[in-house]
Structures are given as C-alpha cells and as structure tokens.
Amino acid sequence: MIKVENLDVVYGSKDKSNHVVRGVSFAVSRGETLGIVGESGCGKSTVLRSLAGLEGAWTGSISFDGKPVGKVRTRDELKLAQMVFQDPYGSLHPRHRIGTALAEPIRSMGAGDGWTRVAEALQQVGLPAHFASRFPHELSGGQRQRVAIARALILSPPILLLDEPTSALDVSIQAEVLNLLADQREERNLTFILVSHDLSVISHMCDRVLVMQNGVFVDELSRQDLQTGVTHASYSRELFEASFL
C-alpha cells in the first residue's frame, strides 16, 4: 500500500544544512498499522509530513497503492492519504463551524456542497449530528480530535497518517480516540502510519514498529516482540526501559 525508498530530507543550504531524515526505506501493506517511535527531533514527524505531501524538501521515492507520488500532489493523490494532527486545538479553524470544517474537504475537491455528508460523518465518530452548528471552542479536546478524524476520513482515503493523535489528550480520552481509530480501521480496512513517543499507544495499535534515531531506523519490532519485550538494538532497549519504569 505504501512504499518508501531512500527517503532523504535536508533542510537549509549547503554550509548550514540539517540532514533530518537519512535514506529511510519501508513498506506498509494494506490494512497494516505501522508505528514509528523515537525521541523528539529524530525525524519521525518529518517522515510523516513528507508522506502527506506537506514537506517539499525530500528526495527518494514514495508510492501509494503502487503509484509513485510527487512533491506536488494532484487531487487524486491527496485523496489517497489524509492526516490527523497532534494538536486538536490547532487543527480545526477557530472560525469555522464543525459542519463547515467537515464540508470543506468535499467542497475543496470540487465534489459538491458537502453538507449532506456532515451528519453521517459525525455519527461515524460517535458525535451527535447537532454538533455541526457548533464552533471548535465549544467542544472538548477529545471531541475535537474526533472531528479531526471525521474530517480526515470524509474523503474516504485508504491511508491515514497519524501524527501523535493522542498526545495532547487526557489519558482517559486517549483510549476512546484509539478505540475509535481501531474501529474505523476494521470497518474501512484502513492502512495507518502512527507516529508517537508513547510506547503504550504504539503497542496497543501497531502490528509493526520502527524505532528511529537521528534520521535512520535502528530497529524493527513485530507485535510479538513488543509483547514479549524483545529488542534488537541498544537504543530501542534504552527507549523501552525508560518508558516502562
């Protein structure tokens, strides 16, 4: 479903360049959930943003569903992958009503008015339909993140890119949002890439985990490895020991 080869991301010009992602390659099959963990600044979010098409400074090759995609995406390519952001307070326009926020993707794609699908989209993420006339500041963080998920799903993308979708939420709300994501994955056979530094979230959601350090993957762990606590590199051992204290 997703294939990435030799992805490099370099910021800045020659003498002050910052090599953030150093030639990473990975593949994700349909319906699979890949987790990427690592400390802050290791480049995991940059990988995700390059996949989404928000980053322009990458080289290498990215392909979705067998078709290579470029740095500037066409509408059809954008429909393949949507993203859920970390901060539910920043990812919804403060002056757009929830209904407008959900209708905007459809209108932007030139696929009609969009309001006809708002109620259905809200129900799918477990919110009452009358929320459509509210503003984002009238919702709680968890409800906002549900709206953000509904917005990402409204174009029916086969791939969902999750950039720490629960790290800005309360622990009790985190589980709700994760369950919602897992339900949607079952229902629509979605492919997820989940970036997080919360290892319990990762082990709850992912079939496979890549451990990232300084722009390269240093370890790959299967679901079994996670459950039994097997690691193959010293860095991932450190990471896991630090989090399970």
Partner: peptide, 9 residues
C-alpha cells in the same frame, strides 16, 4: 488547519 486544508486539496 492550513496544513490540513492543503492536504484536502
């Protein structure tokens, strides 16, 4: 939200 808007075209 601007990044998201770019993503949905």
């Amino acid at each position: 939200y601007v990044a998201a808007a770019r993503l949905y075209g």
